[in-house]
């Protein structure tokens, strides 16, 4: 562990530590650009999406719901729930952040919170400076936004048969995330996902429920199920 209390974390250091996140975000954002193009968006709409949302799975979910013709209320609640984890990350980050950051600076730093930014930033023991966090977030952000634009442009030169196959992108991303969660946290993950997937399929196919509400109900039911069945000693998270 470096003696981090001796020096203040700099903007440059933030950018350097953000670079691996940039590399990871770029291709995922490309996939998002492709999805937006599939939905019939214009390039500026896709870019605006990434600029204003900056949320991996939240954006994919939103795109999915928009494509399925969900109501705005369904969209709002679903996105709110799937991104609720940012509240917990933000609470933790806020505790470690140097004091005295206010107004629009604080709002901008909050907008940059993502899973990856959070996990890199909280590795530092000492107070996190606003310059460092800004560098980290800006680097990650630029990867996400530029990747979206590039993905959209790449979509314009793909042959139609390949474009249909690209529709699997979204699901492939979620199943990859699932496999990694399973790897880290074990069978509990499969049980929770099994419950939510089954319930969602049932609600949509049997009850013809709108996809947004069905999503919200299955997600909530499965997390309560998970919280009930895991003992507190189990370090699921």
């Amino acid at each position: 562990m470096k003696p981090e209390t001796l020096h203040r974390l700099t903007f440059k250091q933030g950018c350097q530590e953000g670079f691996p996140i940039f590399v990871g975000y770029f291709p995922t954002a490309m996939a998002f650009g492709l999805v937006c193009r599939d939905l019939g968006m214009r390039i500026w709409e896709a870019v605006l999406f990434s600029v204003t949302n900056f949320a991996g799975s939240g954006q994919f979910l939103a795109a999915n719901l928009i494509g399925g013709g969900a109501l705005l209320a369904e969209l709002f609640i679903s996105v709110l729930l799937v991104n609720l984890r940012y509240s917990f990350m933000g609470a933790e980050l806020n505790r470690n952040l140097e004091k005295g950051i206010r107004g629009w600076r604080k709002a901008l730093l909050a907008h940059g919170t993502t899973d990856e930014v959070f996990s890199v930033a909280v590795l530092h023991r000492g107070p996190i400076s606003k310059e460092y966090l800004a560098g980290l977030e800006l680097t990650a952000y630029s990867g996400w936004v530029s990747g979206t634009a590039v993905g959209f442009l790449v979509g314009m030169i793909l042959p139609p048969a390949l474009q249909l196959a690209v529709g699997v992108t979204l699901y492939a991303m979620f199943s990859s995330l699932l496999a990694q969660e399973f790897h880290q946290k074990g069978f509990m993950v499969l049980a929770i996902v099994g419950v939510s997937a089954t319930l969602n399929s049932f609600l949509i196919l049997q009850c013809s429920l709108a996809i947004g509400w069905s999503f919200v109900i299955s997600m909530l039911a499965a997390s309560f199920f998970g919280a009930l069945t895991t003992s507190d000693s189990e370090e699921v998270l």
Binding site: N64, R85, Y171, V189, V195, N200, M219, A227
Partner: peptide, 19 residues
């Protein structure tokens, strides 16, 4: 605890039955 499990629970309906 339930809230922290939400992102995992979300993966199920994000994949099925859409895929």
């Amino acid at each position: 605890k339930s809230l922290r499990l939400l992102p995992i629970a979300a993966l199920g309906p994000l994949i099925f039955p859409g895929v």
